[in-house]
Write a protein that binds this DNA or RNA. Structure first.
Lengths: 316, 316
DNA sequence: TTGTAGGCGTTATCAG
DNA sequence: CTGATAACGCCTACAA
């Protein structure tokens, strides 16, 4: 293993000069700096993160905390995880996965990424003694990254109007959380701007719940209706039941999902959907958290990423 | 932060005695040992894993390497990950997720868990200079954990016979990998033991490929046929198309999947399936890998976990 | 601007 | 069986 000392010998300087070239290069004269840099390159030196962690009283570990049940979790978590991991790897950080909220503070970590937080979880956060960031919008001042839920459904609703669907119905998730309110707001605001009256249903986030809903109300739906769904799961159920009721998709009925990560392998129709760049969001969360750690906890603000509409087979 | 020194002072012994009580308790007299243990408990001392890592030239990090494309990956990876994480957390280990095979050896890690390995990947392994274990059966002597694929399809096939399905057809994945061969072998051996002639189809691991297959051959399938499928994805496609062709499931046609992790939220039928205890397998992999690291790379052998049949709506 | 000394928390080694 | 010492690789504080 190549150490600071090896580089120092190679460059004929002291260890401290090498250390400075790495951490505070501006404090070193250009000549010495380039000498050191050459030696570093020649020996392929990389700082030992563990030794750095020891002196800095860091662990180089952060926790990925998920407060949602992982069995019923959206498949996009895996993308979030890999995006997050990519951000960590660059900085030589590693993660521990935690599903049990009571174990957040056991062991050593420099900070936390918290996902799947619901309203009931917030009181937990104020007790945390390490920096943390949230995945998912909130309006209590906690740093977060999310996609712009309101914008997403605005895009979806405008698209439905542009495709000349006359009725535009929103099928949301029956959950009282900020992301759902934002998605509904995106839909409602867009319709009202065009003097159209919104129509909203809400169901649990399962494809079969959506199927039941369509089954029950199918006779009420006229042709030229587009369903804006708050998740791909719901959209898949809507689309499936529409076909069962002999509704023509996409000619007479349009369906737009949300998330854009649903496995084509399990659904037979290619769903038009609002896609979130989840990997990128994971990577941004990593960067945000590491920066927050570095700055000993200073606020990082809120980041809303633009989602995009992916046009596929379930809309005309 | 409570350190070794604090405990030593509290117990009126040297740091080394405290260290020994933790690592080699048999070398310390019972009196001193209990003194130290009391002090440890009183101060709620926990060893600093980073300092340990530094002296032991360890990083306390392992890499979770996935060689499969993560977008098309099975949803059960998330369960494997969380099981693996649970095993790591106990030993204060953290992980880095790696999807790019060329980056396996960049950065620091004490060992690797490798998943999604295909035949083409094996030459890579011999070049690795750190201990590793595989998720997924192989017959080249590499340590692994997997479920017993052969046993799983034996259970499925016997179950189909017991439910008096007269024809039993296997629908496999068209891939030349050990797990697939083992699943086919479990089916074939069981049928041949009962003097029944096997009938095998193979399709890509997508529900729509399975649907196409059923659509094409439906007229050839008599009543009282059970389809043993090599994955839940295939089973979902088979079941869906059977219904579309007006076949009665489960009365006239049975369908059995494999994996047992498929989201009920996206499929409307409750699938009978062979379930692998994936979380537990993840945890075993963690234990195996950490043990291997501790024993500086000594072989850990092969672990095959018993899968179980979950009886649900797609078989009578 | 550069170098020296000391220490982060732990453990191996060797002396007592 | 127990303790003092040195070392792991790096960085802060101070001195030159």
């Amino acid at each position: 293993m190549v150490t600071l000392s090896d580089v120092a010998k190679e460059a004929n300087v002291s260890k401290m000069t090498v250390s400075r070239v790495i951490n505070h290069p501006e404090q070193v004269t250009p000549e010495l700096r380039s000498l050191v840099e050459q030696a570093t390159a020649k020996l392929d030196y990389h700082p030992n993160a563990i030794a750095q962690a020891l002196v800095n009283n860091r662990s180089n570990v952060v926790k990925f905390v998920t407060l949602e049940d992982i069995d019923s979790t959206e498949p996009y978590y895996i993308n979030l995880l890999f995006g997050f991991a990519r951000g960590l790897n660059e900085k030589q950080y590693a993660m521990q996965l935690v599903a049990d909220p009571t174990k957040i503070e056991t062991g050593r970590a420099d900070g936390y990424l918290i996902t799947g937080a619901r309203n009931k979880d917030y009181e937990l956060f104020d007790q945390l003694d390490k920096p943390f960031v949230l995945f998912g919008e909130n309006h209590r001042g906690y740093d977060f990254v999310d996609n712009d839920n309101q914008l997403g459904e605005k895009i979806a609703t405008e698209y439905a109007m542009n495709r000349f669907y006359k009725q535009i119905i929103f099928i949301g998730i029956d959950i009282k959380e900020p992301f759902e309110y934002s998605r509904e707001a995106g839909y409602i605001n867009t319709l009202q701007k065009n003097q159209i009256i919104p129509q909203i249903y809400r169901v649990p986030n399962h494809s079969h719940s959506a199927q039941d809903l369509i089954h029950e109300h199918f006779s009420e739906f006229k042709k030229d209706t587009c369903f804006i769904c708050a998740s791909d799961r719901i959209a898949i159920g809507v689309e499936r039941q529409l076909r069962i009721e002999n509704g023509k998709v996409p000619e007479d009925f349009g369906v737009i999902g949300y998330d854009g990560v649903f496995l084509d392998q399990v659904a037979n129709t290619k769903l038009t959907t609002i896609k979130q760049p989840i990997m990128e969001m994971g990577e941004m969360l990593a960067n945000m958290l590491l920066k927050k750690i570095e700055q000993s906890g200073s606020p990082q603000g809120e980041v809303m990423i633009k989602p995009t509409l992916i046009r596929r087979g379930s809309t005309r």
